[in-house]
Amino acid sequence: MSGVGGVNGVDASRARTEPAAAAPAEARGAGGTGIRERLADWGFPVLGMVVVIALWWLATVVFSIEKFLVPSPKDVVDAFTEHAGFLLAQSWVTLLETVEGFALSIVVGVPIAVLIASSRLIERMIYPLLLVVNAVPKIAIAPILVVWMGFGQLPKIVMVFLLCFFPIVISTASGLRSTPAELVELVRSLDASRVQAFFKVRFPYALPQVLVGFKVAISLAVIGAVIAEFVGADAGLGFVIVQSGASADTPLAFAAMALLGLISIVLFYGLAALERRLLPWAEENR
């Protein structure tokens, strides 16, 4: 859990201050091939996790902490097995909200970024508006979304969208603007149309930056879904956490939190893997 929180925190703060500068660090995934590197990539993180869980267990036993305050790892695992079907169904709900909101922010955000990058005039019109909208704390909007859209999935999707939209627009627009001067000249010297220039050069060149935006957004997406579920929902992992909090079923809340972390990690590394598949050239060029 702490690992996921860390990833989200770093990405979110970077997105706000310097989306472009975040590129190099983000672009590099774990890429070792030797056994030693493989061990460093996977062995040590797993070891760290095992140690933390062992300490956690030890603490609950030694200090005989009440189960409803801090459950032991075994209590959490028991909650898992006892409510497996239920938890899975709720995970599915949250996952769907997350992915749908994320997809929506891509569908809307990328074209807007294209507009911003293609004309200074449009940039000047839209950009300040975006900044203002982004400055509003999203949590403040959540109750209003419930008023407007009820308890269904829609307000959750909209919430996810609101969180994902901004980083995607910003990094896509900055990627589209970063076409090197020599490539611009090349395209000009071939008398290419704007459409040709866009699809053959500018957009592909921006893709690594676009992916940076996606990775920042996907981490925020899960947070958005949970926030919206906290405020008003009848399904989803956020709903489970609120419910089990009310009935002091802390082990179940922990189980739901662990699942949220898992969703976050899987989505993030899924994107990272996709990036390595699709843009093998990106790592070498930045």
Binding site: P180, E182, E185, L186, K200, V201, P204, Y205, L279, E284
Partner: peptide, 8 residues
Amino acid sequence: QRPALLPW
């Protein structure tokens, strides 16, 4: 002066 190749 520079190769100006498309890296992908």
